[in-house]
Amino acid sequence: MDTSIWRALFYLVGIMAFAGLNAAYLGWCERKGAARIQRRIGPCEAGYGGLWQPLADGLKLMSKQLLVPQGVDGIIFRLAPVLAMVPAITSMVVIPFSENIQARAMELSVLLLFALASLGMLAILLGGWASGNKYAIISSARAVSQNLAYEIPMLVTVITVVMISGSMNLREIAIDQQGGFWHWNIFRLENGHFLTMWISFIIFFICSVAETNRAPFDMAEAESELVAGFMTEYGSMGFGLFMMGEYLNIVVGACLTATLFLGGWDCPFGLTPGVWWFLIKIYVLIFTFIWIRWTYPRTQIYRLLNLSWKILIPFSLANLLITAALIKVF
């Protein structure tokens, strides 16, 4: 692998730009999507079709005072938003955008992504606790129990993919699925994996919605019950960083889903594979995230945990066994 300093710098700047643009414009996409679903127009004042809206929002957030209320744990309160943002950006390092665009083809990239995702959870927990606010603490407790519950089925479904590809390297998993959609893990014809892998895909997708604390699983920032959850005491860019972290987590989740199940940069019909197919896939997935958010109301925390413990975990375990059997039998 080329170890020149320019390569590192190029990827650093590229990843930062990709992350920043996504964090800014997914907010716009979200608002536009919500507006379309509710048959409104959405942001339209700032620039053509409201395209300058993220810039205006960013300027507003940055020019506001970074208020640290009395009685909060100052250091942790200031650090938590950063901790929410950093793992999300770091995750981008191992994502294979195409055959040649990947900052680091790490052997254990799948594991790294999950390790970093759990750091993001720590940010929510510490941020909520440091606020010294009842709503924030309740929200952190919910977020943590939810994330722990959904990490299990997620990891178990990932194991099925790892077993099929025989690697924990995202790049190799993607290469393994090249050559048309019938090679993708979700519809894989080989060994009859299509029988169970679509269930894996659905479980994985539900879990990634839950892991990113998106509606209908946004228990952590349930506006109607908990003001704004762990973000209650945060204003200005502290709030902004949490929001950006949330959107980046969505991007990472979509990238992971696209790589693990949808063949990465592979074209469904074997034509011109490349980074554009990867981008198309992740934006379709992100659109689905937005679509889901504006379709379903928020669930209750009990139902949420029941869904994970009673349905997703048994199903993912059964799935794991069947997949292993299929690999062994054929």
Partner: peptide, 13 residues
């Protein structure tokens, strides 16, 4: 990675 995933991500939390 396991250290991050289990100790930071689960035990500390």
């Amino acid at each position: 990675m396991m250290q991050l995933l289990i100790y930071v991500g689960a035990v500390s939390i």
